[in-house]
Design a protein around this nucleic acid. Sequence first.
DNA 1: CAGTTTATGTCAGCCTTGTTGACTTTCCAA
DNA 2: TTGGAAAGTCAACAAGGCTGACATAAACTG
Lengths: 171, 171
Amino acid sequence: MADRNVANLMGRGEGLLFLTDEQLRRGIEAMFFAYRGFTADPDRILQDYGYGRAHHRAIHFINRSQGTTVNNLLSILGVTKQSLNRVLRTLVDDGLVESRVGTRDKRERHLFLTPKGAALERALSEAQRNRMRDAYRAAGPEAVAGFRTVLEQMMNLEMRRHYLDGVDGTK
Amino acid sequence: MADRNVANLMGRGEGLLFLTDEQLRRGIEAMFFAYRGFTADPDRILQDYGYGRAHHRAIHFINRSQGTTVNNLLSILGVTKQSLNRVLRTLVDDGLVESRVGTRDKRERHLFLTPKGAALERALSEAQRNRMRDAYRAAGPEAVAGFRTVLEQMMNLEMRRHYLDGVDGTK
DNA sequence: CAGTTTATGTCAGCCTTGTTGACTTTCCAA
DNA sequence: TTGGAAAGTCAACAAGGCTGACATAAACTG
């Protein structure tokens, strides 16, 4: 039976962990619902501004790296400049993002959140932090540590892939 | 400083866990990248069929609950029937999904994966299981247990919200 | 049985956000 | 001084959300 189709996870010490395909399937599904919940609150806030998730992503990464360039943002987000530009234009026009011509290299534009943009960022990230805290609180501190470890690994795997995509021509 | 803005997580026993806003921000970001990586492999497979994530979701949930009705699927996915129908039509036309008229209630359509549909489902979920196993293996069994606990909590929070949305009129 | 509700499907039109391709302007660096 | 990188813009298109309107068949209800 496929029911006993198990994965042997040889971890870093601490013995073994066996997961059936069914357990992995439930993990996959949990990712789907968790992510949907994770974006639900910001989506509602953004609606009041007529913005979407693309705006949220731009705001998030500009906040994380104030003064980042457009090219930088492009490679992090992995979209085309036309897509990003459409979003950035509305954010600049609405006074949430400031685009300063570079001093060293005047071709570059350095992106900053205005006070208004920073306020929206705080509202968005606060909603997500609250959601995350709720889950953490319900799961307990020990589970949280494990969660963060696995999530970091998943992120690393993705960053590695993303990086390689940018280097070779396969894109 | 906002740097020392900490969240006190009173867990189920086992003491306390303090997380700064910065740590929570990194968690939020990790979710973004992890989910992107999580959908990257299926996205590539789907491209060969001219399908998108919407098709993947339909296939996944039909596989999970063979014989489910259209209405059922609608409430799980949380999209409009017009959106879902567009996707289902192509899947039925392409012979991946079979739509059988209900026996007890002939208004209902029960959805099944054909062998061809089941094959695609296996390819998609295998890609995701592999990705998940890679992260699990790198993180170790103890972390995996915690990861699954927190993810379950995040899913539960979302399911609860989703359910309430359907019950009261707020939508 | 008549009327209403439910389940499904479909048409038309709109929005966001992704894509490609072509082109311009600016300006650094060899 | 000139080639090419960085940035921006225009146009066109596609996927996949949405709303609203409407059709049909089946089931339910008084």
